[in-house]
Design a protein around this nucleic acid. Sequence first.
DNA 1: AAATCAAATGCGAATAATACGCATTTGCAC
DNA 2: GTGCAAATGCGTATTATTCGCATTTGATTT
Lengths: 138, 138
Amino acid sequence: MTNTVQNDWPAGIKRTRQRKSVLSILEDSEKPLSATDICAKMEKGGCAAWLSTVYRILELFVKKGVAIKTNVMNNEMAVYELNRFKHKHYAVCLNCHKIIVMDNCPMDTFIPQLEEKGFHIMGHNLEVFGLCKDCSPT
Amino acid sequence: MTNTVQNDWPAGIKRTRQRKSVLSILEDSEKPLSATDICAKMEKGGCAAWLSTVYRILELFVKKGVAIKTNVMNNEMAVYELNRFKHKHYAVCLNCHKIIVMDNCPMDTFIPQLEEKGFHIMGHNLEVFGLCKDCSPT
DNA sequence: AAATCAAATGCGAATAATACGCATTTGCAC
DNA sequence: GTGCAAATGCGTATTATTCGCATTTGATTT
């Protein structure tokens, strides 16, 4: 497990062993992870923590803007990712639940239209669902 | 409670009292409802059903394409709405909750890119939030 | 470096949405 | 009307997430 150096620790968050571990896991993953995923990775990495602790850390990270919480489609489990301040969107396979990262944002061409109407966009969520290459019947 | 006439009953779905009730409730509501909401409306409308039954009916409706299931803004409860087969997207003002209808869909220009990757898109959700003309500070 | 103390964690138990199992009932084809 | 597969009533199970509280830990002060 790569242990990313955390140069800029988010302000107002006490540095604990568990929090450092969660942050480095989020830093090392380019895909959003569930609380259980993170908990398992922590155990594997030799820094085991209780699941409720992981939930509390993630909740804090979200509140501080360090992480982003999303509910991928009809999935009952929330996933978390590092807030990298450049937003990404995901396409989720309905069959195998594989997540495909989209390279760019369809809103880019769309924002000007709304801004013209005087609407100041502060954020958006986009979820695309369908069948990935491996799950397509054709 | 208005009882909308259901001329075109979805194919392959047995017409039961409970299902007719759920469908008419979805037809009469212009905003998405949770399973609990629907259950309460059924009871009020004199057609009480068990909550688990409502869940089963909604699950079926979603599978048959009659209804759409969504998780609004990381909320823990799923909501259901009738699939009206004309998709619209809305921009919601964070302050006054005014809803601005978007004229067209930003995904239109985006779909080909994912299809190229072998991902077969079956649908998408988009939520835009920000401040409308009247609520902008400038 | 030791003392201090608020804050974080370990741990289990509680909650809440949703799924499941099975006996009974119901809608539909004949 | 009869037969039967499918749907529902009803309770219980499951699963993600939160809560409560005693113990521990990280920062701060002396």
